[in-house]
Design a protein around this nucleic acid. Structure first.
Lengths: 222, 222
DNA sequence: GAACGTTTCCTTGTATACAAGAATGATGAG
DNA sequence: CTCATCATTCTTGTATACAAGGAAACGTTC
């Protein structure tokens, strides 16, 4: 069907590269994206760079101000809250569907990802990556590839901010035990229960949200 | 904040134009989008056209096959089902939030949109447009602008297919009475109830899905 | 010394030229 | 008559040249 993923246009490749830099925090919100700098850096002309930037603009990762260049999109606290609210709902939905449709290979992948989280629970950065994989396993288990893509997209967009979250004390420990309960519920076919645990697991509220905003301000993101 | 919506780059304008043509069914799924034709049609060179196409590709409205040009994205029945499933969930979420956060102006807009639907309930095409406005009023009432944007985006993407749906016998009548119940629930602050009605209202399942696929085949969309 | 206006420079926006990969049609063999 | 191979043509991909709008720096005036 749509599996010729090997065929990537240059613009798409460039988009991924820049996207990675943004997600990894190498390019910070508000930072200017100069077309000629990017062009020389990637050894191409401005044309494909501009095409990549247009793509990133649609993905919400950069903001293009006509005649004034592109900057890495910076989210206001309000918008960030909104996005986490939607992310929580999408992941809840994944849980509900996954519990109903869970196949053997999905179950295996989930357990594998969970054990990987457990193995690195004392290393923040490693846990961060393993956590990402665990959540993606749930997206895939939903059996709805469109939903999985959307969730993946939003996850990626929130990545720079989510990373900050885990720095909070005991967050990794809590996160892991929530995973455990989610996994158990999924295996038992209790979709509603899994969804109910997933929601606050993802959504950043109350104190946790204040903490996130505080770290944001430290970064100087406008 | 982010309110200088008047500033649109040429590429963005072109994207909207082409997007409208797709949503309106003037450009059908699978149709080839020739760069030079579009360029001459809009009196610009290929460069901004290409930028617009890259944007549309990210929005999922066109598919770009490297070296082989862009075509209007055509959805498989499976994918269509998946997208409606997500759409239903997003709109349910809007209901849940809207019931909690409903302000006087939101309530007014909702009632207004509902009355507009009632006024044109015997004209399929007019109802189709009024229906769109009603749903958008709910998105706005959610108080989550990001959610509203996402819902709007997906609504737009499904627009060509949604239009086919309403042609089914009695669909408009059923749609309208469902609106009534949703509205009543929202006004009463019964978010869960509104969400519960909204889900099947949006999601295309069972017979209705078969009908949709049948109309699709008539269109000849691969 | 500060603020305003002017000029210069730099960046973005667009068109166009050229290169290179598909699609198409023709020609030949089986 | 059908299929394969090759040549031609057409379309896309990329670089570059030029135009035009901001930004910044400079000088001038109050």
């Amino acid at each position: 069907m749509s599996d010729d993923a090997s065929a990537l246009s240059t613009a798409q490749r460039l988009r991924q590269e820049i996207e990675n830099d943004i997600a990894a925090g190498h390019l910070v919100p508000g930072e200017r994206l100069d077309e000629v700098s990017l062009a020389t850096r990637f050894h191409v002309s401005r044309t494909p760079i501009r095409e990549a930037l247009q793509q990133l603009a649609m993905a919400g990762m950069v903001e293009i101000r006509p005649r004034r260049g592109a900057v890495v999109a910076s989210l206001t606290p309000e918008r960030l809250y909104e996005m986490f609210e939607v992310m929580a709902e999408l992941e809840s939905m994944c849980c509900r569907l996954a519990a109903r449709r869970l196949g053997p290979s999905d179950a295996f992948a989930l357990e594998r990802a969970h054990r990987a989280c457990e193995a690195v629970r004392h290393d923040h950065d490693a846990y961060y990556r393993a956590n990402e994989v665990f959540h993606q396993a749930i997206y895939a288990a939903s059996g709805n590839t469109f939903l999985a893509e959307q969730a993946r997209l939003l996850q990626r967009r929130l990545q720079p901010y989510r990373r900050l979250q885990l720095r909070v004390r005991n967050r990794v420990q809590n996160s892991f035990s929530e995973h455990e309960r989610i996994l158990a519920a999924l295996m038992a076919g209790e979709g509603e229960e899994a969804a109910r645990i997933m929601r606050p697991h993802v959504q950043v509220q109350g104190e946790r949200f204040s903490d996130l905003i505080a770290s944001l301000k430290l970064l100087g993101a406008a």
